[in-house]
Design a protein around this nucleic acid. Structure first.
Lengths: 163, 163
DNA sequence: GGTCACTTGTAAGGTGTCCTGACCTTCCGC
DNA sequence: GCGGAAGGTCAGGACACCTTACAAGTGACC
């Protein structure tokens, strides 16, 4: 057994998750640089990712993104400055404002989603589609438990009489 | 199929990885808070994780941790101040210093590794040991490709006549 | 043996992303 | 109509990175 150095060097699971995350993000951002949306930053993701038809309240962004209202506010400020979203008053609550995608924002969102899907497919080719699908399945189950705030509500059964 | 709203709300893979990472880390840091090592911060991980018997050079830490020498230097400064590591001159190269664990550092390292292993086991119980093992296996393959700098060298065959 | 490119590490200053605490405005249940 | 809760902003700070620039030491090549 001379020269065998392996047993103790098992990288921690969180480290492995981080490597995969970083690699994925790098691939994503690199391609984003080549596009017309090169001024998008990672932190903008929580807005694009959770956007709804009618817009998002700051509080919602903060909750889903698991951060404070202040942080969410900064992200939104930045995105407003870049022209991806706009703040409109919430007709239902005069305290609140709705953050909504501009036209450019919608274009960026759909470009980004497409790119992410493509990269995932590419990883499927690289590591085996089944393996990546399994990875996703396991992670989805974990996320449902560990990050319920971020997971879209589980198909609310629409109890007759909208909202 | 009325009320099924799922298809478009597929969270991006990097988001799922992030949720799992965050959850794992939160569990880890929370328990660390209860221990005598509550002053350890996440960034210290890259030193503990890659530490070798004889110590690590700053350059090595930076490479393995995928960051600049300056950043690595700050982390080490901080850890020195907290008493987890010390800098000793490298006998082989007067430019370099070796970063080595103090006694307290060794205690912290082994406590941390133990805790991480326990949490992974706990996740195995929570989500199925096989599933977590599969997750690890897939991520290890991905890391070997995407983060070779961080993965311990693959058991270098010692080609007779040590460097 | 001297020169020169490279490596190791540090110094100074900046950025992005988050935080806490304090505050104002608006809403809503009693 | 009042008091507590919720939506949002302002000010200030922590942290983990970065870039640029540089001093000290190493080693290969003439």
């Amino acid at each position: 057994m001379i020269g065998s150095i392996t047993p103790p060097v098992r990288l921690p699971l969180h480290g492995l998750l981080e490597f995969a995350f970083d690699a994925l993000i790098e691939e994503f951002l690199e391609e984003l640089q080549q596009s017309e949306f090169r001024d998008i930053r990672l932190a903008h993701g929580c807005v694009f990712r959770y956007m709804k038809e009618q817009g998002l309240r700051l509080t919602e962004i903060a909750e889903r993104g698991n951060m404070t209202k202040q942080s969410a506010g900064e992200v939104v400020d930045d995105m407003v400055a870049l022209g991806y979203v706009e703040r409109v008053p919430d007709p239902d609550d005069r305290r609140a404002k709705l953050v909504r995608l501009t036209e450019r924002g919608e274009a960026a969102q759909s470009y980004g989603f497409g790119l992410l899907a493509e990269i995932e497919k590419r990883w499927g080719e690289r590591y085996g589609a089944e393996r990546i699908a399994g990875l996703r399945a396991t992670l989805e189950e974990i996320a449902a438990v560990e990050a319920p705030f971020a997971v879209p509500e589980p198909a609310e059964p629409e109890p007759a009489g909208r909202r």
